[in-house]
Design a protein around this nucleic acid. Structure first.
Length: 423
RNA sequence: GGAGAGAUGGCAGAGUGGUCGAUUGCGGCGGUCUUGAAAACCGUUGACCUGCAAGGGUCCGGGGGUUCGAAUCCCUCUCUCUCCGCCA
């Protein structure tokens, strides 16, 4: 969430920048400022009345000790009034705070100055492209048919065990998954990330802190008996490592990488988008997370995008990078790059990574701060990116590397997979 | 799942109704001494809200209560530890 101070001091700028995300903030921001003024006034009244109570309580204590019982009892009568008054202010303050919080969490993050205007994915800007996005050849087979032909992914059995969107990987399919996970983790280690293995279920406080709650709760599986959520991405548990934390400036940047399974309900998806591996309820992903000094976060965002670019190059996949327009960005992000690989048999781009800078939006909710060089408390910036999500990489590898004899495995994966071809 | 014990500042650990935001030790920071360092000694060292400031207010796991006054008493929730049971 945005900080109250920033909203107060930059009211018009906040409204203007929100409009780039196609969010009309005129009324909501005005209400926030109004509530914050009320909060300050009420807080002052409460403080004053408590201050008086404290003084009286001390006096009474002294009187009792001095044996002046009658005088003490007289003072006691005045405190009753003060107490009732304080209770009233306290209640009013509580209500103001609740309303303020409820409104504040519904305001999206401000987009970075470089975010392009736009409403739909068509308005995203291509900032890089490599490799040849060939049109589908007549002989090209989509990955869902290749999966069956070579018996490496069994969608029907996954259907039987659980339901649609939960495929069963078999034989070289399963081994290729494992190879990809290890390849991605090793590359991240080489880039200086520290590997962590997080829980796959999180509590509501964690889901709230990274922004999945309250606005995206329909996208998460919920274990109702224990009130826990299955993670939609490792971003949630990994970023929450640093919830309610004060880091030292020399700890920054924090670089973590985690492999996890991810679970998404994907309510409302249909058609060719969900065919085969294109969109699953359970999938594997290696996620990189960084916590940075505010001055460094955009430099680090580029570093993270370069890391993902390097992975796609090594996998020999045609790809492009998009800078998302205001309308296509997530609620929490200030700047997002999407990375897409070309799927030759489907003749379409598939999103395999999303790299974002959240600036202090998550940190404000997380209460993630650090002491800077001068000992001053500052809010840190958080960033994350997929490096990478497996299913669509798998889809592109199968489709782009198919020959009449089998599927060629990129050289970089062979040591991890232990085979050169699926046939 | 059953029984018991506990939760205090970065950490360890006192405090069981009034002057306690909290003794002390360790750690951190600054200084003296030293060519430098160690040791020793001295000083300093939490967060949040509010205010130009002085100051005021809140916080001893969370929430509620008793009291003029709560870290301290009561209720409740959460978590941790020990023992038993079950188990990868």
């Amino acid at each position: 969430m945005l900080s109250l101070n920033f909203i107060r001091e930059n009211t018009q700028e906040v409204i203007d920048r929100l409009s780039i995300k196609n969010f009309n903030g005129v009324e909501i921001i005005a209400r926030i400022v109004e509530l914050d003024n009320q909060r300050r006034e009420t807080q002052k009244k409460l403080d004053d009345s408590q201050s008086q109570s404290n003084i009286l309580a001390k006096e009474i204590g002294t009187l009792f000790q001095a044996g002046k019982i009658a005088e003490a009892n007289r003072l006691k009568e005045t405190t009753g009034e003060l107490k009732a008054q304080a209770k009233e202010f306290d209640l009013a303050l509580e209500n103001i705070k609740i309303e303020l919080e409820e409104i504040l969490i519904r305001v999206p993050n401000l987009p970075h100055a470089s975010v392009p205007l736009g409403k739909t994915p068509e308005d995203n800007i291509i900032v890089a492209a490599e490799g040849e996005a060939k049109p589908a050849a007549a002989s090209s087979v989509p990955h869902w048919d290749l999966a069956t032909r070579y018996d490496i992914i069994d969608f029907n059995t996954g259907n039987k065990i659980t339901g649609a969107g939960f495929p069963l990987y078999k034989g070289k399919g399963a081994r290729l998954q494992r190879a990809l996970i290890n390849f991605f983790l090793e590359e991240a280690l080489k880039a200086g990330y520290t590997e962590v293995q997080p829980p796959y279920l999180v509590n509501a406080a964690s889901a709230y802190a990274t922004g999945q709650l309250p606005d995206k709760d329909a996208q998460m599986y919920h274990a109702g008996l224990d009130d826990l959520y299955l993670i939609p991405t490792a971003e949630v548990p990994v970023t929450n490592i640093y919830r309610d934390t004060i880091l030292k400036s020399q700890d920054l940047p924090v670089k973590n990488v985690a492999y996890s399974a991810c679970f998404r309900r994907e309510a409302g998806s249909y058609g060719k988008d969900v065919r085969g591996l294109n969109r699953l309820h359970q999938f594997d992903k290696v996620e990189i997370v960084q916590i940075s000094h505010p001055d460094q976060s955009y430099k680090i965002l580029e570093e993270m995008r370069n890391h993902v670019t390097g992975l796609l190059r090594k996998l020999e996949l045609p790809f492009r990078a998009l800078k998302l327009c205001g309308g296509d960005m997530s609620f929490t992000s200030a700047l997002t790059y999407d990375m897409e690989v070309w799927s030759s048999a489907q003749a379409r781009w598939l999103e395999v990574s999303s790299v974002s800078n959240f600036e202090s939006f998550q940190s404000n909710r997380l209460k993630l701060r650090f002491k800077d060089e001068t000992g001053k408390m500052q809010t840190a910036h958080t960033l994350n990116g997929s490096a990478l999500a497996l299913p669509r990489i798998m889809a592109a590898l199968l489709e782009n590397n198919q020959t009449k004899d089998g599927i060629r495995i990129p050289g970089v994966l062979v040591p991890y997979a232990g085979f050169e071809e699926i046939n």
